[in-house]
């Protein structure tokens, strides 16, 4: 089926975003720990199915570690330090499920797919195009970042603890200047190539991606409703 209209068997970014919005309540209110845990597992499942298992494992394990650490510390005598760690941990770990879904979106949505999906939603190009470029640009910035870090290591100005503490601003300067110059150059070349191939504001684009909802989208939207209820009312 290569080259034909692409039907991906994974949820579309629209339903992923909906799911993310639905579970945002986890950050706000008092949610039962069991529900949060179920959410973490579900997000982990999504990552396993549509992204990488290692990523899923990483986050689920982190959550479990934090949860266990808190409850262990609660059993011990109440020193201020322990209390502090418990509070911080219990706050931070609630961000994990949302972060996981965010990871899913960023890792599995391609710029072209995003543009096509947003066009379906009739989202104006002024928003969808820059965001598509963000999606396109993140991996490039990541590559550049690694490269710059290597270069810094070779020059002895690397991101070691000592360097960051001793001259924080200069270290930041060392990172930002090459990153900016490189990104601008890439950005210019990227724009020129896109414009030369007809990217513009005038016409509606079509897409080779088939962005109709598939079974995964319906399941995901159902899950979104379920979790929304669980989070808000239970």
């Amino acid at each position: 089926m290569k080259g034909d209209q692409k039907r991906r068997s994974r949820p579309n970014v629209r339903s992923e975003l909906l799911f993310l919005l639905a579970i945002n309540g986890v950050l706000i209110g008092n949610v039962k720990p069991a529900v949060i845990f179920a959410l973490v597992l579900f997000s982990g499942l999504l990552l396993c199915l549509f992204c990488r298992i290692s990523t899923a494992a990483k986050y689920v394990l982190t959550y479990c570690l934090m949860f266990s650490a808190e409850h262990l510390l609660m059993l011990l005598p109440g020193i201020s330090l322990f209390h502090f760690i418990i509070v911080i941990s219990s706050v931070l770990r609630k961000f994990i499920p949302c972060f996981m879904v965010g990871c899913l979106i960023l890792e599995t949505t391609t710029p072209g797919n995003f543009l096509a999906s947003m066009q379906r939603l009739h989202m104006p190009k002024v928003f969808s195009l820059p965001f598509a470029v963000v999606l396109r640009f993140f991996p490039t910035v990541k590559e550049d970042w690694h490269s710059i870090r290597s270069a810094m290591k070779l020059r002895g100005i690397g991101l070691s603890f000592g360097n960051v503490i001793a001259h924080p601003l200069r270290t930041v300067e060392y990172i930002i200047v090459p990153l900016l110059s490189s990104s601008i150059k890439i950005g210019d070349e990227l724009s020129a190539a896109a414009i030369a191939r007809g990217l513009g504001m005038e016409r509606d684009r079509t897409s080779v991606y088939d962005v109709r909802f598939c079974i995964w989208d319906h399941l995901l939207m159902l899950a979104a409703a379920v979790f929304f209820v669980l989070i808000t009312f239970v």
């Binding site: 993140f138 601008i184 504001m201």
Partner: peptide
Amino acid sequence: EKLNGKDLINIGIFSAIYFVIVFIT
């Protein structure tokens, strides 16, 4: 003046850089 393709791409690129730097920090 209406925003054209080049402007929108610029916005995207700088937003990406700004966000990455803020995020790393």
